[in-house]
């Protein structure tokens, strides 16, 4: 549905020139939710803005629904954009129009008559739960409600693709959750393909099928979301997962956590095991056969898309040899182990 072929985009001139995108290649299958994560300045916004040519790439092709957008005339491009909805971090609603009128705007510009506009807007108000707010002005709405208006407006032309750049970053966790559920419904019920930029791992876990990680204008890892969490390949991906794990540690542990090993410190492991593995009595084996002491800080079963994944954070107490043996054993069983850091023990 969306294909980027050798897309590059540069900003600035001469020595100041930086490649916001360099030779980016990926494609998003029809009906999927594709997430892009990466550190600030990686080029994520530039990437998504190239998908509807708000930003014109300097090289390469951007193909959406079979059309190379780069070759279109301005009026054909405007036409093509009607089938590519976009939602924004700052919502970008018209303050002079009510909720209803904001959603109706794309249809009005299309020259639709009042009754056919109404026929399209009403179901969108229903879908986004804004029925009771249809005559309110954006200033009277909460952030979550404003983003719903943004979503409804983006869907007004019945697009095949929805682009979302940090659409939940300005929202509190509760609203974030509700918006994500709405996006998931839109994907599943209306079959809209979604390209979503985020820095929130929760977003990825909840709705993405595929995931790409960007750094310095390049996509450095690209995987099915379940594989990504079960078996991250690049260091950046591992860091992302560690960061999420670290964020969830109890404060008392965080304070004792160091990145370097010292003689009186124990490693802190983050284990993740996919599907069946989680049923096996791995822990018992480590403790009984290898005499490693595990001080389990956290254990969880998560749902990533529709797959279960067990995660565990544990302090590992044992000799270097025991720990090596334990690591090898877990890796043989297909368990992914990350060393988050080392916990120093009080003397």
């Amino acid at each position: 549905m969306i294909t980027f072929e050798h897309v590059s985009k540069y900003f600035g001139k001469n020595s100041q020139r930086i490649a916001a995108l360099s030779d980016v290649e990926f494609s998003v299958e029809s009906g999927k939710v594709f997430g892009v994560i990466g550190p600030s300045g990686a080029g994520k916004s530039t990437l998504i803005r190239c998908a509807n040519l708000l930003e014109r790439p300097d090289e390469g092709r951007v193909i959406v629904d079979g059309m190379n957008l780069i070759e279109l005339t301005p009026s054909d491009l405007a036409q093509a954009r009607k089938k590519i909805g976009m939602i924004f971090q700052q919502f970008n609603l018209l303050s002079s129009r009510t909720v209803y009128e904001n959603i109706a705007l794309p249809l009005e510009l299309d020259g639709k008559d009042k009754s056919s506009i109404k026929q399209k807007v009403l179901p969108l108000l229903e879908l986004t739960g804004l029925k009771s707010k249809q005559d309110a002005y954006p200033a009277q709405l909460s952030g979550g409600q404003r983003q719903r208006v943004g979503i409804a407006r983006a869907l007004a032309n019945q697009p095949k693709v929805l682009l979302s750049d940090e659409a939940t970053s300005a929202l509190d966790p509760e609203n974030t959750h509700a918006i994500l559920r709405l996006l998931k419904d839109i994907n599943e019920q209306l079959g809209v393909t979604i390209l979503i930029i985020t820095h929130e791992m929760e977003v990825v876990k909840e709705i993405c099928h595929h995931l790409a990680i960007m750094e310095h204008g390049k996509i450095i890892e690209h995987a099915d979301v379940v594989d990504f969490f079960g078996n991250p390949k690049t260091e950046l991906a591992q860091r992302f997962i560690q960061k999420v794990a670290k964020d969830h540690l109890p404060i008392a542990v965080k304070q004792r956590l160091h990145s370097e090993a010292t003689p009186n410190s124990n490693p802190l492991w983050h284990l993740s095991f996919l599907g069946k593995t989680s049923q096996e009595p791995l822990i018992a084996h480590l403790m009984q056969q290898l005499s490693i002491t595990l001080n389990i800080l956290q254990a969880d079963i998560e749902l990533i898309r529709d797959q279960t994944m067990g995660t565990m954070i544990t302090e590992v107490v044992g000799s270097t040899e025991q720990i090596q043996a334990g690591l090898k054993y877990l890796q043989n069983k297909g368990v992914h182990v990350e060393v988050i850091g080392y916990v120093r023990n009080p003397e």
């Binding site: 509807n52 708000l54 301005p74 009026s75 405007a78 036409q79 093509a80 954009r81 009607k82 590519i84 909805g85 976009m86 924004f88 970008n92 609603l93 018209l94 303050s95 002079s96 129009r97 705007l105 794309p106 009005e108 510009l109 299309d110 407006r153 983006a154 007004a156 032309n157 682009l163």
Partner: peptide, 21 residues
């Protein structure tokens, strides 16, 4: 940008978005 994203032409952006706002 929002206007462009839903296919508004420059004249429509001027008259239907910027002017009322």
């Amino acid at each position: 940008e929002a206007g462009m994203s839903f296919g508004a032409r420059p004249m429509q952006i001027l008259l239907k978005i910027l002017l009322p706002e």
